[in-house]
Design a protein around this nucleic acid. Structure first.
Lengths: 197, 197
DNA sequence: GAAAATACGGAGTAGCGACTCCACTTGTCA
DNA sequence: TGACAAGTGGAGTCGCTACTCCGTATTTTC
């Protein structure tokens, strides 16, 4: 992602500007939501609008780049916890961290929701790295008996997105996580038919 | 809401049109999201744009009217279940129903999220009726030992909004509800410090 | 059933936001 | 260091959408 698809590498100043735009976009989208204008991003980055569009030809492509960057960072964090001595704490701690970040950074919720869609369709999309890293954390926590055995990474991604959404709007983050975590820890009992549609 | 704040009651045709607009707005917002244009609503209702704006002077006021109507309907449903013989089934069944509706009707998720904000601030806003009705269902389920005692209506509203969001984007509705319901049923154990931020 | 009051429809206005275009600047390479 | 390629900035275009205005139609009232 540091050189154009066709031809030479980017010029030094262009590379610098690209990074500035990406950073600015991340901040603007995180705080004010993804419907913020491209001009706002350009202003924050200290470049002209033309420059933004040169690097990211549509708003959608800019948004996508930001979301991918967010997901990659989360995936890296998850990967670091892979060999933690306490798999339960690693899993639940990571989950909490993501939700608490999302409460102030709206873009994360959207990234998770999109990645969740990907995960369900098993398309090797943007979120596959996070899904994979999360899968390892999940598996280890399950082996340690800290998380019920009948859930997969896809459900966790969806739960992550849902909790992030709820926490960002209504507060009550800790109460919600308490409920979700107890649900994740509980051994599946006999089906009481409660989830009928 | 059937006569203007100042003066005479609405003319018969105006009353008719108001209802048509409200119904059309509900459908359009539910299916295509709340960023659909007012013109789309007018077309669906079979009236001119001028008529829409005569009844609802801003788009925001139209949206609010739709959301309030949705919340009132949900509150009425909840109220009907108040005297059910099986409080657990009543509570969980209602919860499932709302989430499964929200999966296809985006407006519901937004209404719930707004109501969740209301509920937390104890503002007697649009969602207070639903929060109250839900509170009764919750309390009865708690007395019957079907739901843990340490959650209140506010958390349930937030959970409802979060699950609706997740179910609408990522699917996996039943899996998510299974986790959430087990979390709601579980007796609160010793604090394992998992919900730290 | 006619006058007065009320409501309707939809062309028109205003403003915003994504995206383009090109004269000008900056970096690269021999 | 000069020539050329690459990149920049921001005024301008285009399309979309919330909202207004007013001539016409409908309802109510007496």
């Amino acid at each position: 992602m540091t050189s154009p698809a066709s031809g030479r590498p980017l010029r030094a100043d262009a590379l610098r500007n690209r990074a500035k735009v990406l950073a600015a976009a991340e901040e603007v989208f995180a705080v004010q939501g993804t419907s913020s204008s491209t001009e706002e991003v350009a202003r924050k980055a200290g470049v002209g609008i033309g420059t933004v569009f040169r690097h990211f030809p549509t708003k959608e492509s800019l948004l996508e780049a930001v979301l991918v960057a967010l997901l990659e960072r989360l995936a890296a964090e998850a990967a670091e916890l892979r060999s933690s001595a306490d798999p339960g704490a690693a899993f639940f701690g990571f989950f909490s961290r993501v939700v608490s970040q999302a409460a102030t950074k709206q873009a994360i919720t959207e990234a998770l929701a999109e990645a969740g869609i990907d995960a369900r369709e098993t398309t090797g999309g943007a979120g596959s790295g996070l899904t994979a890293a999360l899968g390892v954390l999940l598996e280890r926590a399950q082996e340690a008996g800290e998380v019920r055995a009948d859930v997969g990474p896809g459900e966790i991604m969806a739960l992550l997105a849902g909790m992030s959404y709820a926490a960002a709007r209504a507060g009550a983050r800790e109460d919600l996580l308490r409920i979700a975590f107890d649900g994740l820890r509980s051994r599946p009992g006999p089906d009481r038919g409660a989830a009928r549609g």
